[in-house]
């Protein structure tokens, strides 16, 4: 029985899960963005593993390059004032990429956890009904298992976080989980591949739009802060 478990697939699934958890729950937003890039590279490998080379190529271009660039743009990594050297200067780095310190009240976290639980039960029910084989030998489908984990935790993270970029990250991880589930449920038939390809394109474009919006909002907030400081200094 153990021999039937593919070690490579298991390792890939494990790494995917780890990268996703870091990406979702690291309060250091820059590190989370890096974790997402690693996650997207692993997704590329997963598509290649599943026998969908076109999806792997799409993931590489849209997931790694476009979404990664969007995330770093949202963090302001391409701006002159945060040059390469500031990456080493930790105090400046923290000012540039603030750590998300938002902690919701207990009730907020509790309701979000309950909502996520309900969501996970629903996803579990989906798997149970559509893939009965999965329930009897879950360890034979490590990528499906990790897809369920991704869909559950990412929805929870999306509901829990208030930081805009972290919500964008959660959306991207959720998307990856849904795409994996799609291919896991339907196999790599053309229709499923086409749906995933459209989904990847939309996720990439959505991340780009989100990053541009975050950037503009940040600029407005900085202006407001400057004005506030100026008023305070004048007094």
């Amino acid at each position: 029985m153990l021999a039937s478990i593919d070690l490579w697939e298991g390792a890939l699934a494990l790494l995917l899960g780890l990268a996703a958890l870091v990406c979702l729950f690291d309060r250091h937003v820059l590190r989370a963005a890096w974790a997402f890039c690693v996650f997207a590279l692993l997704m590329t490998l997963a598509w290649a593993w599943l026998g969908a080379p076109w999806l792997a190529a799409a993931e590489l271009v849209l997931g790694v390059l476009l979404t990664g660039a969007s995330l770093f743009h949202a963090l302001g990594a391409f701006e002159g004032r945060f040059s390469r050297f500031s990456f080493r200067d930790l105090s400046r780095l923290e000012r540039a990429y603030p750590i998300d310190t938002f902690r919701g009240p207990m009730s907020h976290r509790l309701t979000r956890a309950l909502l996520t639980l309900a969501w996970c039960i629903m996803v579990g029910a989906v798997i149970r009904i559509v893939m009965p084989a999965m329930t009897y030998a879950p360890s034979e489908h490590p990528l499906m298992l990790v897809a369920v984990l991704l869909v559950g935790t990412a929805m929870g993270a999306f509901a829990l976080h208030r930081h805009r970029l972290r919500r964008l990250l959660a959306f991207n991880v959720l998307g990856a989980g849904v795409f994996l589930l799609m291919v896991g449920l339907a196999g790599t038939i053309e229709g499923a591949q086409a749906l995933v390809a459209v989904g990847l394109l939309i996720a990439g474009l959505g991340s780009l739009a989100g990053a541009l919006l975050i950037r503009r909002l940040r600029a407005h907030e900085d202006d407001a802060d400057d004005e506030h400081m100026a008023v305070g200094g004048g007094r």
Binding site: G175, V178, I189, L195
Partner: peptide
Amino acid sequence: LVGSLTYLMGVALIIG
């Protein structure tokens, strides 16, 4: 975007 992923889950179930 999250609404569309929920929608896609439903579609995944249908074609699965």
